[in-house]
């Protein structure tokens, strides 16, 4: 499958808001790649992270469990986690596994930026 290898890009969405764009299979390796990007952005002072999953169609529970660990780290730092561009199946999987009870889901990157700009500098 072409999406076997995950592709990660990270950037600043707004002041204090890190963006991680992840496209591909979120398994243990994909989840870890996202976690590594999250750690780098947190080290740069980002307390709010947005994970954009546009281009991700398939995930597994091992990968999602790593996303839960990112959420825990952010919550320990009084930070926030958000997602955007989720497929209905990924959104349902996150709901089943408890991720969306503590993270915010936005329809797309623009909506995430509009909601989070100005709220991230803690």
């Amino acid at each position: 499958m072409s999406e076997e290898q995950i592709r990660i890009a990270k950037d600043l969405l707004a002041e204090g808001v890190g963006l991680i764009a992840a496209a591909g299979y979120i398994n243990n390796e994909g989840g870890q790649a996202i976690a590594d990007a999250a750690s780098e952005l947190m080290d740069q002072g980002c307390k709010t992270l947005v994970i954009d999953l546009d281009g991700t169609r398939i995930i597994n529970s091992i990968g999602v469990s790593i996303l839960l660990e990112i959420l825990e780290k952010l919550m320990d730092e009084k930070g926030r986690l958000a997602f955007c561009n989720l497929t209905p199946t990924i959104a349902k999987t996150f709901e089943i596994m408890g991720l969306v009870q503590y993270a915010t889901v936005y329809p797309d990157r623009l909506a995430a930026r509009a909601a989070l700009e100005g709220h991230a500098a803690v």
Binding site: S61, S65, E72, E95, G98
Partner: peptide, 12 residues
């Protein structure tokens, strides 16, 4: 159960 996910050492 999603209610016991956070804080658990095993998320599998």
């Amino acid at each position: 159960s999603s209610s016991r996910v956070l804080g658990s050492t095993s998320k599998r």
